[in-house]
Design a binder for these strands. Sequence first.
DNA 1: AAATGAGGTTAACGCCCATTAACCCGCCTG
DNA 2: CAGGCGGGTTAATGGGCGTTAACCTCATTT
Lengths: 215, 215
Amino acid sequence: MSDAHVPAPTSRREQILKEAARLFAERGFHGVGVDEIGAAVGISGPGLYRHFAGKDAMLAELLVGISERLLAGGRMRVEEGGDSPAAVLDALIDGHIDFALDDRPLITLHDRELDRLREADRKRVRQLQRQYVELWVEVVRRVHPGPSESRARAAVHAVFGLLNSTPHLGRPGSLPGRTEMAELLHRLALGAFGAVDAEVEGAVVEGVAASRRAG
Amino acid sequence: MSDAHVPAPTSRREQILKEAARLFAERGFHGVGVDEIGAAVGISGPGLYRHFAGKDAMLAELLVGISERLLAGGRMRVEEGGDSPAAVLDALIDGHIDFALDDRPLITLHDRELDRLREADRKRVRQLQRQYVELWVEVVRRVHPGPSESRARAAVHAVFGLLNSTPHLGRPGSLPGRTEMAELLHRLALGAFGAVDAEVEGAVVEGVAASRRAG
DNA sequence: AAATGAGGTTAACGCCCATTAACCCGCCTG
DNA sequence: CAGGCGGGTTAATGGGCGTTAACCTCATTT
């Protein structure tokens, strides 16, 4: 999970990153000016250059950071709950939900502004993302051995979309609070995964039966 | 409002919109220049202003257009298959999947660049989106009467996230082809909705039982 | 007490880019 | 064949914005 338990210097740097993340998520990387970011932390304009090489550097640090933390968290959960695959999947889902609910701006940036990065950073982020996906795919396939790998991977992508849907919410009040939301998302994710190999009543789909035989 | 109901010449204008959509989705609204859009359709630069009032106008027309078509399509399906709620939900899901799979750029823009619109257009788009969501909520609640309205709405949002996940795909080849993908997404969506009120084995959640009694 | 450096400030520079001006050409109508 | 006018072109304009320069001021160190 997050390292919130460590007091953390909460230095300028981090404060800036936090505000920048919020602003980037709200109005897009190109849509927010350096002056705005500065204003958000009380200093103004080029003062940011004492802490970062430039606007791009902030985005890069944000995206690499989030990807690393997601992957690290996922690996931790996989190692810890080694007994039951289903329990591991539960843990992965909960972890991702915590992330989506607590760090909305970052989740948003994660798949919105990736292409604004320099080649090197972008490759690194993509690699981390891929590893995270594959982590999930392995666990999902242990719980649901039926479907082919490509189906499992597609399902994982889709469930990420589901879990990351919280940023796109409507007006507050029309939706459940955080704890109920977390529980609901968990259910939805499990329900989706469960449907990957389940035969929809009455209509057995060829591909599924075939891949199950091929196992 | 738009004069889209007129058959439409299918000419320049639409060609421009199509390319603009692609570019906006790829690099973001602020990330793509007018000259690029022009180049994509063979003319260059300010020639676009013979067809649109400005860059903003293109985005506005794209977003309003997509929202209107989604809502119109949804309403049509609801009216047509009036017999079984489950059948209507199936139709809604299929319709949305077709959209997500065929008009990826638009789906992306749909929830990425909404805030770049002028107040009036943005309000219109949001209203259309809300109506579309409520359409789904009603149908879902007919199929799954248990959960509260806010839960149903959250579930709909989440399933949208699931269905719209296709743009974020990895490298081609690691994922199923279009027809298998459509079938898989349909299953996942149904599985998710089915899990909204299903009691996860062993653990009955208070809220669900309560809202079911309250009907 | 002088020196240093971290962290700010405002002013200036320069590029990018949307939009506008001014001008052009070919078609279709009268 | 005159005259619009739809659809383009290139050049100019002007604002926004990232980045750099030059300068300031405390703390802390020596």
